[in-house]
Amino acid sequence: MRPTRATLALAAGALAPALLLATPSFAAGAAPSTAAVVSEAGSAHDGTDVDDLRVAITRILADPATSDALRAAASAALDDGTPEALRHFLEVGRYEVDV
């Protein structure tokens, strides 16, 4: 056997188990999903701390690409300060402003 064939056979033998064991098994059935599911009744920001909501809005304000209308809406939500107003801005208001 030539040295190149021996090298290829050795490499294939070493890689085969790693490649075969790293792929998902289709015969095992559907695996449970690890994706986060948000119910229709809840929102992505339910249970989020008010300070975290303020930080998210402040990051939007710090972005130089933010429009003046979006800045005004973000400032209004921060001025209101209630968790409901902050959540509404992050979930709905920020998308309605630049429409």
Rank of each mutant, 00 (worst) to 15 (best):
M1F: 07
M1E: 07
P3W: 07
P3H: 03
P3Y: 05
T4E: 15
T4D: 15
A6T: 12
A6K: 13
T7G: 12
T7Y: 11
A9I: 14
A11M: 09
A11T: 09
G13Y: 03
G13Q: 02
G13L: 13
A16T: 13
P17A: 04
L20A: 13
L21Y: 12
L21G: 08
L21S: 11
A22M: 12
P24K: 02
F26I: 13
A31I: 06
A31R: 12
S33P: 00
A35D: 13
A36Y: 03
V37D: 03
V38Y: 04
S39G: 15
E40M: 11
A44M: 03
H45V: 10
D46L: 00
G47W: 08
G47T: 00
D49L: 04
D51L: 12
D52Y: 12
L53R: 06
R54Y: 05
A56W: 10
I57R: 06
T58C: 04
T58G: 12
R59G: 11
R59C: 08
L61V: 04
P64Q: 04
P64S: 09
T66N: 10
D68T: 10
L70N: 14
R71F: 03
R71G: 09
R71M: 09
A74Q: 01
A76N: 14
A77C: 07
A77S: 10
D79F: 01
D79H: 02
G81N: 04
R87H: 01
R87E: 11
V92I: 03
R94M: 08
R94T: 05
R94K: 11
Y95R: 02
V97T: 13
V99K: 06
V99W: 02
